[in-house]
Design a protein around this nucleic acid. Structure first.
Lengths: 238, 238
DNA sequence: TCAAAAGTGTTCAAGTTACACCCATGT
DNA sequence: ACATGGGTGTAACTTGAACACTTTTGA
């Protein structure tokens, strides 16, 4: 089962897995997709979705395979955040796991995946006890998401192509687990100049309707090269 | 060579390594510790220090072992920043590597390690071509260090117990690869209230001498729980 | 006495926070 | 007509940025 290394055959080998913390926004709040584990040990316990990396398979490809085959997800935001390597973390055997988090627009990827694989969406408050160190992974992924959201406008990854500002605000309220000030939020987001206002309203959540916006990738690229990120040390030490 | 997993024996196994980007501050600037690789393939090429994770060895313990045995370093700041998993990244065989960075006070750990293991300290400008994806690792570690330095006062890890403000400023100049404003820097650092001024001057770099300070761990802990980190979303999007 | 590094305050601009009412529309 | 969610501006405050001279002392 070893990939057969001419030079390193003296070295130990280990199973390497990927685990995915999948965040989805349902229009109201961010939820987490969890699954009933299908294999021993700890069969039927709640767990993150994951899988083993194969021979000659890039880790990135491995995560994408797992998400495609087991959950039906493709082309979504995906990033690794930490590697879990305690030798006794899995009673089923020594497994080194590379933690990833994914962001998906719930509206696009409808929830059929859920039923077919015994998956379920949980709010942060509802998260049950998970196997192994998966609760720790979830917490660390949540923190990573907060950090990331402070650095780049990542909220869009949780929404469909078109979205309203009230929706976007709910995404951020949910990420930061607090209620942002509405006026300040709109001011800030709009000031970035990376949103394109459409001539269309979404009336699904109110009678007045809320204007739809689209994320403008090109202006965002411009924006990123805009000294900001580069020159600003801003020793934060918050 | 496999750790023998009762449940997961169907899954592939891989060599797992750790690689370390070691940052050290020599009183003037931050440097990087690189080594001439001692094994085939690519023997004698410049490389990060690294090693394979053993059976039943926690990854954290593995990194510490590598640093202790190969470089003589113990009890230093150490953090993983990313996992490198391309299946063809190493011509010697499939190796998944977990990238770490370390911060050491050069004055404390004298440079004897360097000679014994064909190591050499390089400024950022001098960094040669490294094996595999190690140049990428170095760049990503540098960025991680910048990010980290914006979040928490990490500069102290690169200095001995006692240090002067001019030294500390050089550390940050070096991390951010720019020259910070001296007065603003001192104002900010001192305002945190986590430095303890000693009744002692360091006269090694000037006739007037610079006051020595010590990092106050307790006040820092207080400081960390000080709403800042918790309440401040401050959507940055710099 | 002078060269070399250490130390010190103020002003202005920018960014962040707090806060309350009117608007549009479907029922 | 009214209930519901969408939308808007200003003033106080906090933070960051720019900037130049004095102090100390060993050689």
């Amino acid at each position: 089962m070893n990939s057969g290394s001419p030079y390193y055959s003296h070295a130990a080998s280990h199973h390497v897995a990927v685990d995915c913390v999948i965040f989805g926004f349902d229009g109201e709040q961010i939820k987490l997709l969890l699954f009933k584990r299908q294999v021993e040990p700890l069969k039927y316990c709640w767990s993150l979705i994951g899988g083993f990396i194969k021979n000659n398979e890039n880790i990135e490809d491995g995560v994408n395979r797992v998400l495609r085959d087991l959950v039906g997800l493709e082309n979504i935001f995906l990033e690794q955040f930490r590697c879990y390597g305690k030798s006794d973390r899995d009673p089923g055997g020594r497994v080194i796991s590379i933690g990833h988090y994914a962001l998906i627009p719930l509206k696009d990827h409808e929830l059929n995946v859920v039923e077919s694989f015994q998956g379920k969406w949980f709010t942060f408050e509802e998260i049950p006890e998970l196997i192994l160190d998966h609760n720790q992974m979830v917490n660390e992924a949540k923190n990573k998401l907060k950090d990331k959201a402070k650095q780049i406008p990542i909220g869009f990854e949780l929404l469909s192509d078109k979205f309203t500002l009230p929706e976007l605000k709910k995404v951020y309220d949910s990420i930061f687990e607090r209620t942002l000030d509405n006026r300040n939020f709109r001011k800030k987001v709009l000031s970035l100049g990376i949103l394109e206002k459409l001539n269309e309203k979404d009336k699904s959540t109110s009678k007045k309707g809320a204007w739809l916006y689209r994320f403008n990738m090109e202006e965002f690229e411009q924006y990123k090269n805009n000294e900001h990120l580069l020159s600003n040390p801003r020793i934060f030490w918050m």
